[in-house]
């Protein structure tokens, strides 16, 4: 008997518990409306390290240790560490895993990595393979900029649809039992390509994947958008959010309603902070979910949340060679019982 329901959704037989989370962010994110929900806000984007790559690794490692400390656990007690980031060869995760010394499985789903990690953690725990799984994701504005776009000091004007990569990292500890919100469903998305080529409009490139994953999730579980008191996509930004709302109606006939928000739009004060379409990067969904949403779930201000983390599966190479930008989105249903 499998735990699959419908076409792409998996239902754990005993919902795994997120017993602890942690979120750390850079200074710019700390000034945003969710700054007060971060466990640690760095005062400097270098986090005291020699390079921005070093800073990102410091942030992820710090998020992981903070997450473990909050649950009163130490690395040897954790069975598996699942982690990913945006850098080539996911070096942030690899080097963090080296320091944590937990058996490590590297994952990559671009900015959907946070939900991918959480989904896999839930499956490993519910499948009985692991007792404690730590899932983490990170991104850093300066490391992502140089890899995907230009040197950080290059003076280039951003288009209105361009997004700002979030600096920070989030981690979650998943266990078979304990206190905290549980993971009730996992919907694994398909790679979707609706022909967008502009790497400065990733929101529009990822919106179809987000909409299709949500529609499939609603169809598979029988829970419509109204079931959730919060639906968040990862990093579609202002324009991607708009497109996802339209696509959910045109492709599935679902009205996502007022409770649908986007992590990339929640992190920054889009009026005062110059981020154009909003935040992006693995850290967008990671720090919003593991910082803000988790704390609200514990206080029961949210009870049913659907996290739909979105990723753009392109690289500068594929883009410069004229390739489309395919998107992916994974949904994880998190409920407080």
């Amino acid at each position: 008997m499998t735990k699959k329901v419908g076409k792409q959704t998996f239902k754990p037989s005993s919902p795994p518990v997120i017993i602890s989370t942690a979120a750390v962010s850079g200074p710019f994110e700390g000034q945003g409306p969710l700054g007060k929900y971060m466990d640690h806000v760095y005062t400097d984007v270098t986090a005291g390290e020699r390079s921005f790559e070093g800073a990102e690794k410091e942030m992820m490692t710090n998020a992981c240790f903070t997450c473990l400390n909050k649950a009163g656990k130490s690395p040897p007690e954790v069975d598996i560490f699942l982690s990913g980031d945006l850098l080539n060869q996911t070096i942030t995760s690899g080097f963090s895993a080296l320091e944590l010394a937990i058996p490590y499985l590297g994952i990559y789903g671009a900015c959907s990595t946070s939900a991918e990690g959480l989904a896999l953690a839930a499956m490993l725990v519910d499948g009985g393979f692991a007792g404690l799984v730590l899932a983490a994701a990170s991104s850093h504005n300066s490391t992502a900029e140089r890899q995907y776009r230009y040197p950080t000091e290059y003076g280039v004007q951003r288009k209105p649809t361009a997004q700002w990569t979030v600096t920070g990292s989030g981690a979650a500890l998943v266990a078979p039992a304990g206190q905290g919100p549980v993971i009730t469903y996992v919907t694994v998305g398909k790679v979707t390509d609706l022909g967008i080529k502009d790497p400065l409009n990733l929101g529009a490139a990822m919106a179809p994947a987000a909409a299709l994953t949500m529609i499939q999730h609603f169809a598979d579980t029988g829970h419509g958008p109204e079931y959730y008191d919060l639906i968040v996509t990862g990093d579609l930004g202002k324009f991607g959010h708009e497109m996802a709302v339209k696509l959910a109606v045109s492709r599935g006939g679902f009205d996502l309603g007022k409770n649908y928000r986007d992590c990339g739009l929640m992190i920054y004060d889009t009026e005062k902070q110059d981020v154009h379409s909003g935040g992006s990067g693995c850290a967008a969904s990671a720090i919003v979910t593991y910082g803000y949403i988790y704390k609200k779930l514990l206080k029961k201000e949210f009870n049913k949340v659907l996290l739909v983390a979105t990723g753009a599966l392109h690289s500068p190479t594929s883009s410069q060679q004229g390739g489309n930008i395919p998107g992916i989105a994974h949904a994880v249903s998190i409920e407080m019982t």
């Binding site: 140089r146 230009y150 040197p151 950080t152 000091e153 290059y154 003076g155 280039v156 004007q157 951003r158 110059d274």
Partner: peptide
């Protein structure tokens, strides 16, 4: 880079932009 956010091509097209592209790459 902060000035160029507003000035756009006004700083990029003159030789200052050439300097910026060289220096920012070297620095990065």
């Amino acid at each position: 880079d902060k000035l160029a956010r507003y000035a756009g091509a006004g700083l990029a097209v003159p030789v200052t932009g050439f300097a910026n592209s060289v220096v920012s790459s070297a620095l990065e």
